[in-house]
């Protein structure tokens, strides 16, 4: 009896990002430890889980390359996610899902990003390619594509700034304001952000230049640049519309400006 229980026992890791907790079940205790290490600082209680995923590990020979294109589609009330090294299903109504993947936390990372993207889209928020930090109780986002300077601006942050991420920022809507929340999704900095949040007071579109300055940006350019950096999956027209409307709402409530900067700590003196 106890042997049978041991064989079927599920090990749970609950990952809490942006106030939403996702419980991950696995029968493999070493994979449980790997996930716990990956999401250290973002572990929550399974009792508070908003969603539950069962992870089914497979042999690498069963999967394709990790950099395969992601496919995402809604079918009969379930989101179907597929990439080379994983397949996943998620039913938002039952709040349950399943991941068939190789022994890699990268697949879990992808699923978490997608689930949070879908979750935030329905609430007017989004994940965005941006560094973010809190200073003086205010959160600031630094958006840009790869190479724009997200990690650089994070490295230049003064000691009294709390880094939320140098790669993917979490923006949650609460009434007429937005919160920036820490994420475990790190870029070149190689370390997770702090699991805290603060009201978002401004977005800076990063641009490397010869001197530090902040420039105004028109509404259309702000939205276009923001959309370019928001994580979403264009295969689903309804989702595209949701994200577009969210970006427009966001731009009407949060100042979006261009930050031209040189890699010098003095740039933080004009962040306010």
């Amino acid at each position: 009896m106890s042997a049978a229980l041991t064989l079927t026992a599920k090990h749970t890791v609950s990952v809490e990002i942006g106030g939403a907790t996702i419980a991950l079940h696995t029968v493999d205790p070493s994979f449980q430890r790997a996930i716990e290490n990956r999401y250290a600082g973002f572990l929550g209680s399974s009792a508070d889980s908003h969603f539950v995923f069962d992870i089914d590990l497979c042999d690498p020979s069963e999967s394709g390359p990790a950099d395969d294109e992601l496919h995402l589609q809604m079918e009969k009330g379930e989101w179907l996610l597929q990439r080379g090294n994983f397949r996943a299903r998620w039913n938002p109504e039952s709040r349950r899902g399943w991941i068939h993947q190789t022994y890699s936390s990268y697949a879990v990372d992808c699923v978490l990003r997608i689930v949070h993207t879908l979750l935030l889209a329905s609430q007017g928020g989004f994940l965005v390619h941006a560094a973010s930090a809190i200073r003086g109780g205010k959160a600031f986002l630094f958006a840009g594509v790869s190479g724009a300077g997200k990690t650089t601006i994070s490295r230049l942050a003064p000691p009294d700034a709390t880094l939320l991420t140098d790669e993917i920022s979490y923006v949650r809507r609460e009434g007429n304001q937005y919160l920036a929340c820490g994420t475990p999704f790190a870029g070149e900095l190689g370390r997770a952000g702090e699991n805290v949040s603060a009201p978002l007071c401004g977005v800076f579109l990063l641009e490397k230049g010869l001197q530090n300055r902040v420039e105004p940006v028109g509404a259309a350019e702000a939205i276009q640049r923001l959309l370019r950096n928001i994580l979403f999956f264009a295969e689903d027209p309804e989702l595209v519309q949701l994200v577009f409307q969210s970006a427009c709402e966001f731009a009407s409530l949060v100042p979006i400006r261009r930050l031209v900067f040189v890699p010098d700590p003095a740039v933080w003196e004009i962040i306010r």
């Binding site: 509404a219 259309a220 264009a234 519309q241 577009f244 427009c248």
Partner: peptide, 24 residues
């Protein structure tokens, strides 16, 4: 119907939900 559009600051922004092309 496969578009998202919004008038903001006097500018109409339109995005295709099919290929995410963005127009002002």
């Amino acid at each position: 119907t496969a578009i998202a559009a919004r008038l903001l600051g006097g500018e109409m922004m339109v995005m295709s939900a099919l290929d995410s092309t963005f127009f002002t």
